[in-house]
Amino acid sequence: MLRFFLKRLATIIPTVILASMIIFALQQLLPGDPAIALSGEEKDPEVVAFIREKYHLNDPLPVRYAYWIGGVLHGDMGESIRLQQPVAQLIVAKFPVTLQLAVMAMAIAVLIGVPMGVLSAVYNGKAMDYTANVIALWGLSTPNFWLGIMLILLFSVQLGWLPASGYVPPTENLWENLRAMILPAFVLGNSIAAVMMRHTRAAMLQVLSSDYVRTARAKGLSPRAVIVRHCLRNASVPVITLGALEFGALLSGALLTEQVFSIPGFGKLMVDAVFNRDYAVVQGVVLCTATTYILLNLIADLAYFLVNPKLRRS
């Protein structure tokens, strides 16, 4: 177990380094010159030259990469040219918002998607199965921004139960924070729940037709015991894979949903930075997202480990 973990950890380091290089290199392909963007209306060549010098924009690419990555390793991801704020500080401020939204959305997705998938597999071909599939199809084909607007119309405008938009930090008022987050979390969770339901259903159907489930039934176990003890764990592998991917996607920021609900998360930070050629911010956010993805993959691998004893021996 420990050896497996260390081995995986060892592969992570080059992966992160490679990701950082790609992020830095791709950034150079963006049209536009930050020095000119920064130099103001007059574009005084002297100012432009000064900015180029100050931000090492004249140095070759590998040297600039070295400056950047060296800073990142010391917790210095550069400064946002537009906001005049350290990138690290921006990330630390926005990441918890996105993280909370992602965790809530994932919880909703799992709580809806997994039980629905299990039930539709167990009642394969019956009314329950069709109902679950219709709900899943609806969840998949409903655009997030539209669902968000409709939910605001219903719960905020018509019923007045929840705030239409805005964000309250949980440290300030947890209840208000949850009230503001529940709708966007539901919107994000809804579409993931649909995918999760389909995956859970497929995995369960496969497990339910396996020989060991027949063995379990031949032992005299009740249908519930067969499902809980013999099926769920074996059906969980594809669901874990999907969960890790979806969670990673959520953590990179849900642009449209954040926009609809005016939530100051990663998505908004990223888009603002791209439009303003705020290179340092883009690099920082993407690096942060990429690292999170890689870590989530590691966590998923560890989860497989707990689920599948065959991996534990090697």
Binding site: S210, D211, Y212, R214, T215, A216, R217, A218, K219, G220, L221, S222, R229, H230, R233, N234, V307, N308, P309, K310
Partner: peptide
């Protein structure tokens, strides 16, 4: 019927590779 299954009638299935639950001791 469940009392009979595994109780007074025991089963041994073919293919012991797939007839045991891989994730249970």
């Amino acid at each position: 019927l469940r009392k009979v299954r595994g109780g007074s009638i025991g089963f041994v299935f073919q293919d012991p590779m797939s007839s045991l639950n891989p994730s249970m001791t």
